[in-house]
């Protein structure tokens, strides 16, 4: 899970793994790994979800953390356009290191203060990702689907 701080990386994992959500923000330091089993079309997957400290001026992007990754989930917050700008940046850095599939997540869709991404900008980047998914860790919208879609990608491509 990559992205700026407070976009909801930890919340997405918590919702997916434990089915819980908390309004209270507790910033992540370093890494926490969660496990989750998933079955797609009779295929068993064991997901190891690396929830990583958000990158910002207090914490730099750590290439080491994505070394062994099979897929990357790049999370943005739909109320803060800056998180999308950061994501494009993180994307560029990650792509230098790996060609694993990347999913772009636009989180917090339950809040209605959306940034106005010009259609074209998103389209320009669309092909960079195997999927662009709008989620809410609060209501759970599309959280399951997010991880499911990664499983489906592997079923199709491996």
């Amino acid at each position: 899970m990559l992205g700026s701080s407070a976009v909801g990386k930890t919340s997405l994992v918590r919702h997916y793994v434990d089915g819980i959500f908390s309004e209270k923000y507790l910033t992540t330091l370093g890494v926490k790994i969660d496990k989750k089993q998933l079955t797609v079309k009779d295929k068993q997957f064991q997901f190891l979800l690396w929830d990583i400290e958000g990158t910002d001026q207090y914490a730099a992007f750590q290439p080491r953390y994505i070394r062994g990754a099979s897929a990357l989930i790049l999370v943005t917050d739909c109320t803060r356009i800056q998180t999308y700008i950061d994501a494009v940046d993180i994307f560029k850095q990650a792509r230098q290191l790996t060609d694993v599939p990347i999913v772009l997540v636009i989180n917090k869709t339950d809040l209605n203060k959306h940034w106005q991404l010009e259609e074209q900008t998103l389209l320009d980047h669309q092909h960079d990702f195997i999927e662009v998914i709008y989620t809410s860790a609060k209501t759970g919208t599309s959280v399951e689907q997010l991880f499911q879609s990664i499983g489906e990608y592997f079923v199709k491509h491996l």
């Binding site: 910033t27 330091l29 958000g54 207090y58 803060r80 940034w115």
Partner: peptide
């Protein structure tokens, strides 16, 4: 860890408020 988390928590919350305001 607890001590750094406290510091960073404050810093990040301030950073985000600032960013939201600027936006």
């Amino acid at each position: 860890f607890a001590q750094q988390q406290k510091t960073l928590q404050i810093a990040r919350e301030a950073l985000i408020s600032n960013e939201q305001l600027a936006q």
